[in-house]
């Protein structure tokens, strides 16, 4: 009996050594399989759509034969998302992006079971061995757009139509208010929230109330914002956008927008895998690293001094001489 066990042990040992010593098989250009889990839909003109387009852009860059993309939408609920994450992992997807902070627990629970799979989520800071976390510094763009509104407002009243006071919206709004104050201490910024991410009609009514109150610049975030942009359009009040450049739909209303370049983030994660890193990186989106950018709408005549001020501030943010603080700082 003991002999037999010894024999088996040596066989196993030899086998293990052989495997360990085998020359590494050359890495064939792997076809990256990416799965995307979205809390909202691919056409929400906000958080979910911006990420979807980023992933699609990377796919266009690499070619469809080198990158496969599967999307599943409307999975706000972490329980449903957890099922999707596990399914995708079992199907051998290489990179699974769960686009929301609410998926954190699920990811940290599932990821250890699939050490060869990369997972990603955000807005967050907490990473794991094979988990990326990403985090847009939305306050930076808020600050720059605040400068535009602060310098250009004639009524000194500016309205913010927010969804729920949480995550990105807080950062963006906080930066925006500081941006306005930095150039126009007399301007009043009224920050309001509809209390929901999807209350389009409420956002529209809120925008109308801001305009009734004299606001001549409006801004806001999340998918509900489209209701407010449309209301702004109907009264000819300019809008400052975030997440995406909504001037595609409202060319005469969206004056400028902060855009999340998810493409860069997704590209970095895909490249990291090639380098052999499956996670553990905290990917910040900022102007300095080019993952945030500011789009101006050419249809608007933004005065040169305003543009110049935005440009110098942008440089200061990029080189680190200006740090837009957050509520906690």
């Amino acid at each position: 009996m003991q002999k037999y066990a010894m024999f088996m042990f040596s066989v196993l040992l030899v086998a293990a050594l052989l495997v360990a010593c085998a020359p590494p098989t050359p890495v064939a250009p792997e076809k990256v399989r990416v799965a995307l889990i979205l809390p909202s839909t691919i056409d929400d003109l906000a958080w979910s759509q911006s990420m979807y387009e980023g992933v699609k852009a990377v796919q266009a860059e690499l070619g469809e034969d080198r990158m496969e993309v599967t999307v599943t939408e409307n999975l706000w609920n972490p329980v449903d998302a957890a099922a999707a994450i596990r399914d995708f992992a079992e199907q051998g997807y290489h990179l699974i992006i769960a686009h929301g902070a609410q998926y954190q627990n699920s990811l940290f629970e599932i990821a250890p079971d699939f050490p060869d799979t990369s997972f990603a989520y955000g807005t967050s800071f907490k990473t794991g061995d094979n988990i990326f976390a990403y985090d847009p510094q939305a306050q930076e763009g808020g600050y720059l757009l605040g400068i535009i509104a602060g310098m250009m407002t004639k009524t000194n009243k500016i309205g913010v139509v927010g969804p729920v006071e949480a995550g990105d919206a807080v950062k963006y709004n906080y930066g925006f208010v500081q941006g306005v104050a930095s150039v126009n201490p007399d301007a009043e910024v009224s920050v309001t929230y509809t209390g929901s991410f999807g209350d389009t009609a409420g956002a529209g009514e809120m925008a109308k109330t801001h305009m009734d109150n004299g606001a001549d610049f409006l801004t806001g975030t999340a998918q509900q914002a489209v209701g407010a942009i449309q209301a702004a359009k109907e009264r000819g009040v300019p809008w400052l956008g975030s997440d995406m450049d909504q001037s595609v739909v409202w060319p005469d209303t969206v004056m400028a927008a902060q855009v999340y370049n998810w493409k860069e983030v997704v590209r970095r994660m895909v490249d990291a895998r090639v380098e052999g890193k499956k996670g553990g990186e905290h990917l910040s989106l900022s102007f300095a690293n080019g993952r945030l950018s500011l789009h101006f709408n050419d249809r608007f005549n933004i005065p040169a001094d305003v543009k110049a001020k935005v440009e110098t501030t942008l440089q200061a943010i990029k080189d680190g001489s200006l740090v837009v603080p957050l509520p906690s700082e």
Binding site: T123, F125, V164, A166, K171, P327, E329
Partner: peptide, 26 residues
């Protein structure tokens, strides 16, 4: 829903969410 939303961004929010500036309401 609104009540919990209030508690989760103020009194009950995870201090780490404030510390790291991500502010996710949990």
């Amino acid at each position: 829903a609104q009540g919990v939303s209030f508690l989760l961004r103020g009194p009950m929010i995870d201090p780490a969410e404030i510390a790291y500036g991500t502010g996710f309401p949990q």
